[in-house]
Design a protein around this nucleic acid. Structure first.
Length: 425
RNA sequence: GGAGAGGUGGCAGAGUGGUUGAAUGCACCGGAUUCGAAAUCCGGCAUACAGGUUCUCCUGUAUCGGGGGUUCGAAUCCCCCCCUCUCCGCCA
């Protein structure tokens, strides 16, 4: 959520920046509401002040045993106008909040302008895509012999679900364990275990609600309270700070969590229908940092490097992309995507997305810390995949496949595989 | 699932209709004392929003788990919900 003060001070400037990311701000509606708000709020508060002081004098008069009837009639005269004013103010404020809640974050000045993914900027490449001396198969074909079973997933749950057995399942688990170990031991993150279902307040806090409800799975906790399945651990982990005033010394907070993620993938019909790339349920190891505002851009570089480190250790070629204004997520001020090389697709595919949200989520969550002046100030929040486990499995199956259909395990994973160096054949 | 207790400021903990945004203690900040420190003393210390002002200041409004109600006036009374704790039952 943007600072409403910013919109009041310079709505045209804000609208221009939002336009760069393809969002059209309803300046007219906002301005009209703002004009109304100012008048109605001032009047409401005046009336409330009058009522309060009259009520107070009733108390005083009563304690002195004086007749309070004249004051009572005076205060009664306020009733109707006050009630009407309060109702109108509540309506205006609700409407403004709704409007504001749907406005995406402003892009950071270092973000290139662009319309869509085609205008993202390649920042760097690591590793060299392997040249195969045989026809490289895709992960579906490689995985079939190793226990990766999409038909079973479809039988149990439908499209976009998979079952893994034996070696594939073991490799999947090994990847998550490995990532957690690297981030906790070498990168200083605290491992957290969090709920996989969260309430609407949490979803609002990180920005999934109210705008993206159709992307979420949900269930009813009781007749009128919904619980949402997390689309990423970012939601429960970042919301740990919701409503808190953190001690400055406790920052930065660095969390890593391994969770399943659930996404309805509404609107992606026909895309990535084959294989594990786009599933309704997948595992991810997520990095979250909660930092002081002045540290967030350094933290963003650091967090991205932490995700890159996993790819490097696994010896998977990747490139780092700086997303342009038009391709960034709703709440992000700046995002790097890491894209891993997939030989069967002959291209790089997203395996991690690392974003700095600045105060956008913190404002929605009222997540603050005490600054040097001892005043509460909004923190900055960041997160990034470190990495998406399912897609990492895909990358290993494809990049490390052998002509005989087996898959060589990256050396760093061998200890996590009980010493197994090769799956299949 | 049954029975009971409770949710108040960073923390602990008073407060059952009226100058209560809220006693007191701790923590924290400033000052005094001291060669310095501890102890002691004095003062300050919630958040959000609005208006004025552009001062790091004044005025106002809202906020005592959440929502609704009664009332001129609600932390305090009524209703609904959420959460925490204790005991019993059940259970991984």
């Amino acid at each position: 959520m943007l600072d409403i003060q910013l919109l009041r001070a310079d709505i045209e400037g804000v609208a221009a920046k939002l336009k760069a990311r393809g969002f059209s701000l309803d300046v007219a509606e906002f301005s009209a509401l703002e004009a109304d708000r100012k008048a109605v709020q001032t009047r409401t508060q005046e009336l409330q002040a009058t009522r309060n002081s009259l009520s107070k004098s009733i108390g005083i008069a009563k304690s002195r045993g004086e007749d309070v009837a004249p004051i009572m009639t005076q205060v009664a005269g306020l009733g109707d106008e006050l009630k009407a004013a309060e109702e109108k103010l509540a309506y205006i404020q609700t409407r403004m909040q709704e409007l504001l809640a749907g406005v995406p974050n402003l892009p950071h000045e270092s973000v290139p302008a662009g319309k869509d993914a085609d205008e993202n900027l390649e920042v760097s490449r690591w590793g060299t895509p392997r040249v195969f001396d045989f026809e490289a198969k895709d992960h579906v074909d490689v995985g079939a012999a190793l226990g990766l079973d999409f038909e079973a997933g479809a039988k149990l749950s439908g499209a976009r679900f998979a079952v893994m057995q034996g070696g594939a399942a073991r490799l999947h688990r090994a990847l998550a364990q490995f990532m957690l170990d690297v981030h906790t031991r070498e990168h200083g993150y605290t491992e957290v275990y969090v709920p996989y279902m969260v309430n609407a307040d949490s979803m609002f806090g990180t920005g999934q609600l109210p705008k993206f409800e159709e992307d979420l799975f949900s269930t009813f906790k009781n007749a009128d309270e919904k619980l949402y399945l997390i689309p990423t651990a970012e939601v429960p982990v970042t919301n740990l700070a919701r409503g808190e005033i953190l001690a400055a010394e406790s920052l930065p907070r660095k969390y890593v969590a391994h969770t399943p993620c659930f996404r309805s993938e509404a609107g992606s019909y026909g895309r990535d229908t084959r294989g594990m790339i786009r599933q309704h349920q997948f595992d991810k190891v997520e990095l979250v940092q909660i930092v002081k505002p002045e540290d967030s851009y350094a933290a963003h570089e650091e967090l991205t490097a932490h995700a890159e480190k996993i790819l490097q250790l696994l010896e998977l070629p990747y490139r780092k992309m700086l997303l342009c204004t038009g391709d960034m997520g709703f709440g992000s001020a700046k995002t790097y995507d890491l894209e891993v090389w997939l030989p069967a697709q002959n291209t790089y595919r997203e395996i991690s997305s690392c974003s700095n949200f600045e105060a956008f989520q913190a404002r929605r969550m009222q997540a603050r810390y005490r600054n040097e002046k001892n005043k509460p100030e909004l923190v900055h929040t960041l997160n990034g995949s470190g990495l998406a486990v399912g897609r990492t499995l895909v990358a290993i199956l494809e990049n490390c496949q052998n002509a005989d259909g087996s898959v060589s395990i990256p050396p760093v994973l061998v200890p996590y595989m009980g010493g197994v160096e090769k799956l299949g054949s």
